[in-house]
Design a protein around this nucleic acid. Structure first.
Lengths: 241, 241
DNA sequence: GACGGTAGGTGTACGGCGTACACCTGTCAA
DNA sequence: TTGACAGGTGTACGCCGTACACCTACCGTC
């Protein structure tokens, strides 16, 4: 039966298989409980075997990020920079929702990985094709920041928790605990002001997709205005208009 | 001489002393090499002694965050919501530049700490006083995201590295390595388009403060426009204007 | 002055982590 | 047949967070 066990993992390891298994494991178990040892076990292999395919854990994480970013749709060309950029960012967002550990992992790495650079490079290309000067395109990329990759870096983002400790756990909405509401009245008011149409799936009080698109369009529209008026950084500093 | 050693740390530990030492150590050594053990050593104490003052490492990090956020200036009231909000955000940014590990720590925690909630609560208050509906204020808070706290979550942020591995190390500008420039021409073009006045301290190619204020004002101006036109979420969805 | 309680520092130990290093084994070219 | 080499194994090290039992110094009370 030792043969059986061996047969089960006959297919030899490969960098690609390691990366895919790692992404799947992080998706399911959360990045927090993801370790070289757990990944090895998942693959039916001894931990050190991984090091024949990956230099170390950091490099593995880089590879995982590249796998994820590789899932983002290529840009679908069309008239106008704005819809093209917008569509691709929303595609990126969909991908990152499937891999909720990825935003934190991306930010925790200190160097952008090749796939991220490639992604950003094409995004700049879209801007340039849309009539942006390199100058303005530069600032736009900074202004968009991680939103360019489809995540929004909220300060309390429930979906964030999922990336940490495992797949979506059905915590109740966990509204403001009354005592906190007294200390932070403005936050309480805001939290209960969930006034988008009540077509939202669960009465969650806050539609993440809506918030994301709201912020995205706010930025894109502001950017378009700058482009139209031929903004340059040598204009009046400190004031945008 | 055992007495000497004791005398040196006569002042007994306290939660406050632990937190301050922790912040100082993280500032200096980076969050990556920050550990309960290193902090204990820094305080001339055995690691387990810390646990008499903090529940565990996570709770310690929460406390450190609260210390940092507590350093942000209270809002200085004035006419108009925009300058008030802007000034406080820039104050927050100054604080976080002194504690480069803090942004990552804040994002890695899954619950906002009391000090963060308090900070955000006052920010919402500023908006409300400025004539925002709870509805719009809600979306604005989401749209600002972590920028509300003074950090920008760039995809490749040099200053970020400092937070990780220790105090500012004088790496050379590390411009595009030529080979990469060929693969990512748009990024290369952008990286060299450092056209703000050459008064910048070091020829860094990119003035972080400028980029931050650029994005901040872009958002604030767009937000003010929405407020002026009485935007509400029950208006035409998907399109901001 | 004796004494029990308690706050706070200590020492030891456990399980988990990433990974260095020596080793084994199966495959394939010569 | 042989020997190189790719790739999986086993052991071990040093680091981490922290549970738990302990010691000690100080305190108010009688």
């Amino acid at each position: 039966m030792a043969e059986q066990a061996q047969a089960l993992r006959r297919t030899p390891l490969s960098r690609d298989r390691v990366l895919r298994a790692a992404v799947a494991l992080a998706d399911q178990a959360g990045i927090e409980s993801f370790s070289m040892r757990s990944l090895a076990q998942d693959l039916g292999v001894v931990p050190m075997a991984l090091y024949k395919h990956v230099a170390n854990k950091d490099e593995l994480l880089d590879g995982m990020i590249d796998v994820v970013v590789g899932e983002i749709d290529p840009p679908r060309p069309g008239p106008g920079w704005q819809p093209v950029l917008r569509a691709r960012i929303l595609s990126a967002r969909e991908v990152l929702l499937r891999h909720p550990w990825a935003p934190l992992a991306i930010e925790a790495r200190n160097q952008a990985t090749p796939a991220v650079l490639d992604y950003l490079n094409t995004m700049v290309g879209i801007l340039r094709d849309g009539g942006f000067s390199t100058d303005l395109a530069h600032h736009v990329m900074h202004a968009m920041g991680s939103r360019m990759l489809g995540f929004s870096q909220e300060l309390f983002d429930d979906s964030r928790r999922a990336g940490r400790s495992g797949a979506a756990d059905p915590t109740p909405p966990a509204d403001f605990p009354a005592e906190a509401a007294a200390r932070f009245p403005h936050l309480a008011a805001i939290a209960t002001a969930a006034s988008h149409d009540d077509t939202s799936v669960v009465g969650q009080g806050c539609d993440d997709q809506f918030e994301f698109e709201f912020a995205l369009d706010l930025l894109l529209d502001g950017i378009e205005r700058l482009r139209q008026q031929g903004w340059t950084s040598s204009g009046p500093h400190g004031s945008i208009r």
